[in-house]
C-alpha cells in the first residue's frame, strides 16, 4: 500500500497504523507529533489509527529555530 510520508511516497504494509509510520522514522520518545491528512493525531491514538492508500502522514519534531 502506498502512502505519502513527510512528502515522500512510501510503501507500507497493509494494516499499518500512524504509530508504525512514526516508529519507522524515529525512535525519539518525546517532542514528536504526527498528522494524518493535515489533522493532528494525538499520540495516545497513534496505534489505533490505521493509514489508508494515498493517505498523507506528516511526522514533525522540535528543531533549532526562532
Amino acid at each position: 500500500m502506498e502512502v505519502t510520508v513527510n512528502g515522500e511516497r512510501r510503501t507500507v504494509a497493509p494494516g499499518s497504523t500512524v504509530g508504525d509510520v512514526v516508529r519507522d522514522l524515529t525512535r525519539a520518545e518525546g517532542g514528536v507529533a504526527a498528522s494524518l491528512n493535515d489533522e493532528v493525531v494525538p499520540r495516545t491514538t497513534w496505534d489505533a489509527t490505521p493509514v489508508a492508500e494515498n493517505d498523507r502522514v506528516d511526522v514533525l519534531t522540535a528543531v533549532q529555530g526562532g
Binding site: G7, T26, A28, T61, A62, V63, Q64, G65
Partner: peptide
C-alpha cells in the same frame, strides 16, 4: 523557542533533550 519541522531519519539527538536537561520551558 523551537521550530517544528519534518523528522528526518536518524535525527534522534534533539534540541528538545537540551531544553529538558536544563529545565527550560519550550
Amino acid at each position: 523557542t523551537v521550530a517544528m519541522r519534518r523528522v528526518t531519519p536518524g535525527s534522534d539527538g534533539s534540541v528538545w533533550d537540551v531544553l529538558n536537561r536544563n529545565g527550560i520551558a519550550p
